[in-house]
Write a protein that binds this DNA or RNA. Structure first.
Lengths: 114, 114
DNA sequence: TCCTCATTTCTATATTTATCAAAATGACAT
DNA sequence: ATGTCATTTTGATAAATATAGAAATGAGGA
């Protein structure tokens, strides 16, 4: 992942409606959600939501697909994982007590190594 | 972690100088780096760097500590981990084929489960 | 074809953010 | 105490981003 792609992705997430929206899609899973459903859940006007969805889509964090009359959005999990990996890349310069210790570890990893 | 803390943290990272700076500190490890050293490495004027360091500090992503004449900055690893965890929280609504599959997994996790 | 529904684009305004020179601060050494 | 070095604050300007109503698009159903 390149630096400016990461900046774009982080900027897309750095807004309350968009962060809530992205987490909603992350939790919704591969099935995704229709734009209208999201707008209703978040209490945001359609035009605003469309703007935010476009930001996330341009950042590569969500994917869209038409289904009948609705447009379904879903989280782009590989993009999310790549962003997190970029953030933690070469953590502690690869010191042994880093990945396995308290520093560069997600909660999921902690569970596994505990 | 609360939503607005996450937005603040993501916003702090959503800027090219700050992202480079944070990654520099993540890779530097617990020893950290002095403000002046960072400014030189990134080629940013001191006043600009100070602005960006303050953003990261207010977002809770970096910690500062005076050492002799310099001020040493280092990454706040638990804050970083909490942010990532918040992003991935309850991924795929906890479906069994999610955490262990292709979806909600960091590269580090992939290595372990492969 | 024509109508209707879901979503996006347009438009204009308000808010937030980035930049960096210059001045101010604050700690250490002598 | 005084000088000096490292860093932060100030201040003024430029640029990017958020908001939402109204109009436009575009796919399906009757």
């Amino acid at each position: 992942m390149k630096a400016d792609a990461a900046v774009t992705a982080l900027g897309a997430l750095a807004q309350d409606h968009r962060l809530a929206l992205f987490r909603l899609l992350v939790q919704a899973g591969e099935g995704g959600l229709a734009a209208g459903v999201i707008a209703e859940k978040l209490g945001v006007p359609n035009s605003s939501l469309s703007f935010h969805l476009a930001q996330l889509r341009e950042a590569g964090l969500v994917l869209q697909e038409r289904q009948h009359r609705s447009i379904i959005y879903r989280a782009n999990y590989p993009a999310m994982n790549a962003l997190v990996a970029y953030l933690m890349e070469n953590c502690c310069a690869g010191a042994a007590d880093c990945g396995a210790g308290a520093a560069c570890e997600t909660p999921a990893q902690e569970r596994k190594s505990a």
